[in-house]
Design a protein around this nucleic acid. Structure first.
Length: 770
DNA sequence: GAGTTTGAAACT
DNA sequence: CAGTTTCAAACTC
């Protein structure tokens, strides 16, 4: 399925990986009002997510796609993160229909907006200010049919035509002159298409990058198997692919890593401001493109980020240059808006996302991503000092309200809270009005915490610690998301919500959620999810230190045996503080300890190595052994026996295997025995009056038993006599075996007679009853 | 289940 | 960074 016409596709690069072809594309020129750093000539993006980007690159691009001179600011940054997310923020209310219709519509209530956007890069000191008017005249529709969502700000005939050409019904969100088309692959062969705001030739466009030629950035994000590709849609007015686009493409390609995980979902999170009023079956959403996040893991190196910001509101919107704070607790609530995010998963096979209303935290919404241990996404806007010294004057930012909305490919289930009264109060404490304008604020979104590593999906995510701020995903624009523990979702799932299905599975009442089976630290998520996490027993750490496995894994305590636990929503402040403390102590504290080793080494190895001294690294005290990996050169263990050729290790492995086999056999035997017992009980159930095929056990009466015993005794006597008279020469044991055989045979005969009698009685009974 | 051992995390 | 203490899990009985 493709929403792009063949001719458009023909213009798209075949491989995202082939970024060289697009590196020379002219990039946006900074305008006079903004001091934008020139995109680094080094546009290469390391494929390895753990490879730090040496240079900071911020590229802002304002695209005017509307005839009214609307301004769009696009700030792109490259990160090594493989996550591709989009967080559109807007104050335009969007209604989401939760009906069974495969389509739901987001209708911007706003008609015109004046926006001044200023983005400041905290690291580079560069800022971009954009101003302009935006007018949204046409309601935009998000249709999950065909597993795709198209945000078409421009009444783009291209997308529609392309979609039609592809034999699919285009799903478009029209926002008057701009086009944001996002299509995700829900099933194999279904591409993910993302059309970024399209810049037309219309004047009055304020381009932070100052390059109108780079307008019309339409991207086609295609995920095939485990790979994610972002392809620019260049068929529009002969637009050239900008460096920004190239960077986006590069960054996106990072997202896909493990080719083996064909089922690896691609997460797209589109955050839109949500009108708090939209708590009805239809949820009003203020379309905004803002926020997004992805920061490279290396704290030392400058971060390259990509931010796509698109203002659609009358209110001014600020764009986070690098990071978007999501933490609800640490950001001024006045300026925070609930964020509606849309996550598009690319997992092949049925998949759905769930939006769960946060019951305890304001400005927070969760997104449950089935098949992923990133169960929860919380997007919270945070206000920070805005850029200073901007020629354009004081930048202002409108309050943004957003709600997470998750859209996944394949069978998609979208859930929207239906108990807004309470939920909205918490989620969208301060609904925005179209006219509301707030003094400079910087929207930030943070990745709160990855529940567990998900290498195949988003390798970098696995390394993200709780509270980590994610820089913008390549090509994702202002997309950001926060991931928090599954328990968090569990804790809030009491709140009712409406489920929306999309695509083939988008119709309401779609099937059961299908968990994606993705590897997780060597284990599939199915395994990890099916296996309940061990409850912790912390007593002194309040579960806020890495002693606590729950906390260390970025999860909330749930069903644990801990005392004085602070690892929960009720103590979010303390928890966040603890997270920060841990990160301060060790920025990689929450990264998975088991990661990929060096070239030529084992695929999995402990990131730090163990320090065992007495266990020989052959007990679970050893983190290497516990992870079922061998110690590596970085281990500082003493007396290590956990290496390839270690006889002790082999012995242990064999014993473990044997034990496992025994367990399996025992389990199977128990199961079989249980089944047999159950079957026997069923068979022996009195059924005289039931008429079923079972025989009445009542025929095994005392008399029958006595008679049987007499028969057996008689047979034994007979065998004895036979032995005495005819087989004197036989050995004693031979005689014994013969006697046993005869007795058993007699027992069998007795049983047969009993069964026959019972059957006959049953037949007689049946005939009488009839 | 109580007590011991162990090594990572935290602390100094 | 090294040594020590704290902590909770792993292990033993």
């Amino acid at each position: 399925m493709d929403v792009v016409s063949p001719e458009l596709n023909s213009l798209l690069p075949d491989e995202i990986m082939d970024t060289e072809a697009i590196e020379d594309i002219p990039q946006s020129q900074p305008d006079s009002t903004t001091a934008r750093p020139e995109p680094s000539a080094d546009t290469s993006v390391p494929m390895e997510t753990d490879t730090p980007v040496a240079a900071s690159e911020n590229l802002s691009l304002c695209l005017d796609t509307s005839s009214t001179g609307h301004t769009q600011a696009v700030t792109t940054s490259l990160t090594t993160d493989s996550t591709f997310s989009i967080t559109p923020v807007s104050q335009l209310p969007v209604s989401i229909s939760s009906t069974s219709s495969p389509r739901f519509t987001l209708k911007p209530a706003m008609a015109t907006s004046t926006a001044t956007t200023k983005t400041t890069d905290s690291l580079t000191g560069t800022s971009v200010t954009t101003s302009g008017l935006q007018k949204l005249s046409a309601p935009f529709t998000i249709s999950a049919a065909n597993h795709q969502i198209i945000l078409n700000k421009v009444a783009s005939a291209q997308a529609s035509e392309a979609a039609k050409a592809a034999g699919m019904q285009p799903q478009i969100i029209k926002q008057d002159g701009q086009k944001l088309l996002v299509t995700a692959i829900g099933k194999s062969g279904q591409p993910i298409v993302l059309q970024l705001p399209h810049t037309g030739s219309k004047p009055g466009v304020s381009l932070a990058a100052g390059d109108n030629k780079s307008a019309a950035p339409q991207y086609k994000v295609v995920t095939i198997g485990g790979r994610t590709e972002l392809k620019p849609m260049m068929a529009t007015a002969g637009n050239q692919l900008t460096t920004l686009q190239a960077q986006q493409l590069k960054a996106v390609q990072i997202a896909k890593k493990t080719p083996t995980s064909s089922a690896a979902p691609i997460k797209f999170i589109i955050t839109k401001t949500v009108n708090s009023k939209g708590l009805n079956p239809q949820t009003s959403v203020s379309p905004v493109i803002a926020g997004r996040v992805l920061t490279q893991t290396s704290p030392v190196l400058p971060t390259r980020t990509i931010t796509l910001t698109e203002s659609h509101n009358t209110s001014i919107q600020s764009i986070a240059g690098k990071k978007i704070a999501i933490s609800p607790l640490k950001t001024p609530s006045k300026n925070m808006k609930p964020v509606q995010s849309v996550a598009v998963g690319g997992v092949s096979g049925a998949q759905f996302k769930t939006i769960i209303p946060l019951a305890t935290q304001p400005n927070v919404q969760q997104i449950q991503v089935p098949g992923s241990r990133f169960h929860y996404v919380r997007l919270v806007t945070a206000t920070t000092a805005s850029s200073t010294g901007q020629p354009s004057g004081p930048s202002t930012s409108s309050i943004q309200t957003a709600k997470p909305m998750v859209v996944s490919t394949g069978a998609v289930r979208m859930s929207v809270p239906i108990v807004p009264a309470q939920t909205m109060k918490q989620v969208a404490p301060k609904p925005l009005t179209s006219a509301s304008v707030v003094t400079t604020t910087q929207t930030q979104q943070r990745l709160i915490m990855p529940a567990t590593p998900l290498p195949q999906i988003q390798p970098n995510f696995t390394n993200l610690p709780p509270g980590t701020v994610l820089a913008p995903a390549p090509g994702g624009g202002n997309m950001g998301y926060a991931v928090v523990p599954a328990q968090y979702v569990t804790q809030i799932q009491q709140s009712p919500f409406v489920t929306l299905a999309s695509g083939s599975g988008f119709a309401a009442n779609t099937g059961v959620q299908t968990q994606a089976k993705l590897p997780l630290n060597g284990l599939s998520t199915a395994d990890s999810t099916s296996r309940q996490r061990k409850p912790c027993n912390c007593t002194k750490s309040q579960c806020l230190k890495l002693y606590c496995d729950c906390f260390a894994n970025g999860e909330f305590c749930s069903n644990c045996n801990c005392n004085n636990c602070f690892n929960n929503l009720e103590h979010e402040t303390e928890r966040l503080k603890a997270i920060k403390t841990c990160l301060d102590r060790n920025p990689e504290a929450f990264k998975p300890k088991i990661g990929k080793g060096k070239e030529g080494e084992s695929d999995r190895r402990h990131s730090k190595g163990c320090n065992c001294k007495r266990s020989g690294c052959l007990k679970n005290y050893c983190e290497c052994y516990e992870a079922k990996i061998m110690c590596s050169s970085i281990c500082k263990c003493i007396g290590c026996k956990n290496f390839e050729e270690s006889p002790e290790r082999k012995t242990l492995m064999h014993l473990a295997d044997a034990a496992e086999v025994r367990v399996q056999q025992q389990t199977a035997a128990k199961t079989k025995l249980s089944s047999q017992i159950s079957d026997l009980l069923m068979r022996t159930t009195p059924v005289i009056s039931s008429g079923s095929g079972r025989l009445p056990y009542t025929f095994v009466t005392k008399e029958v038993l006595e008679a049987t015993c007499e028969c057996l005794l008689e047979q034994a006597k007979k065998a004895e006599q036979t032995h005495q008279h005819q087989h004197q020469h036989q050995h004693q044991h031979q005689h014994q075996a013969e006697a046993e055989r005869m007795i058993l045979e007699e027992f069998g005969h007795c049983l047969m007679r009993i069964i026959n009698s019972a059957g006959k009685a049953k037949a007689d009974c049946a005939s009488i009853n009839c």
